[in-house]
Amino acid sequence: MSQIAEPVQDVTPLEHRIDHAGPPVIEFDKVNKWYGAMHVLRDITLSIAEKERVVVCGPSGSGKSTMIRCINRLETHQEGRIIVDGTELTGDLRSLDTIRREVGMVFQSFNLFPHLTILENLTLAPIWVRKMPKADAEDLAMNYLRRVKIPEQAKKYPGQLSGGQQQRVAIARALCMKPKIMLFDEPTSALDPEMIKEVLDVMIELAQSGMTMVCVTHEMGFARKVADRVVFMDRGEVVESGTPERMFGDPQTDRLKLFLSQILRGH
């Protein structure tokens, strides 16, 4: 028996319908990436439809973080094509700006700006990137702070908040840019166990609102409830993908079986 209750108790999948006929909103086509001589992404081919919710899992060092960081070009790929919302990711700065406006990201280590208040963290990008008037940006920010249930912290600084609160602020900050796609890079890995639930609850609510989401996470309960598709990566390649029921109930490859047994043992 685990000491800490599973953060997501009710894993009944959310009702969800995706229009697979429409054009994919994120498309990886034979993407390869090397760090020096190390081959970290191998022929990744993956297409994600609008409103689809994808959970990426895999052992550490499998390239899952690198893969989602390629979507907003925090990492560059060397071979293949990545197309996000109809724009191909190249060295071109203007297309990069367009994509980064449409793609929000939440990091493992929150990365809030410690010298700005919570409210300033949230309004910064709307004011400077979207050129929104300050008052409107603040209304928007307060709206999202209410959605992540911490409007009373607006005037505080990130260092005064708990980890779970900081991560919820980070989610709200990304949402303030009204992105079409949200990327989550192990959002709960740096949190104390008792704070994981509050962050996952916010993410589940976001999923219910119809956001396209790509999450790197080991929270299998969250994957069961929210994911339309689970993608399993190992050693830089996509090994297996499918619905959560199929992936967790009937894994096809030995690597996934091994991974699942390790994860379950860990819990």
């Binding site: 700006d97 406006r101 809030l112 700006f113 990008a125």
Partner: peptide, 12 residues
């Protein structure tokens, strides 16, 4: 992470 967060928000 500070620069990455700023990049991800689309700041020039």
């Amino acid at each position: 992470g500070q620069a990455e967060a700023a990049d991800a928000l689309g700041l020039a």
